[in-house]
């Protein structure tokens, strides 16, 4: 079991959270987006070894947030709300 920190609720059990993808993978917009850009958005991931920034959702309160963690050691460095200034170390 691991404890994650929801920026709104605080520390909670990992079973209350769901992975939402790598942070920064924004959906392309517009009619003339090339196929390569769509492919990069849909299929290509950086999958870094070590420090990573990911979108997670706290299922019980519905908070979407960014979690910075280490993909090797699983240590969570910080979590902060999407688009917000609040930060929970």
């Amino acid at each position: 079991m691991q404890i994650f920190t929801c920026p709104f609720c605080g520390p909670r059990d990992e079973s209350e959270f769901h992975f939402g993808g790598e942070a920064g993978n924004t959906r392309p917009d517009g009619a003339d987006v090339p196929a390569e850009r769509w492919a990069r958005y849909l299929y290509m991931r950086a999958n870094p070894k070590g420090a990573t920034s990911e979108v997670w959702v706290h299922m019980t309160c519905g908070e979407f947030f960014i979690m910075e963690r280490d993909s090797v050691g699983h240590k969570v460095a910080a979590s902060h709300p999407l688009g917000g200034a609040e930060k929970s170390e």
Binding site: F8, G10, D13, M59
Partner: peptide
């Protein structure tokens, strides 16, 4: 039923209790 510290408090009242939201 939960993994929350019984002596603590948290902002939201929503949590998993015996696996139920």
């Amino acid at each position: 039923a939960t993994t929350l510290d019984p002596a603590g408090e948290t902002a939201s009242a929503a949590l998993l209790f015996a696996g139920a939201n």
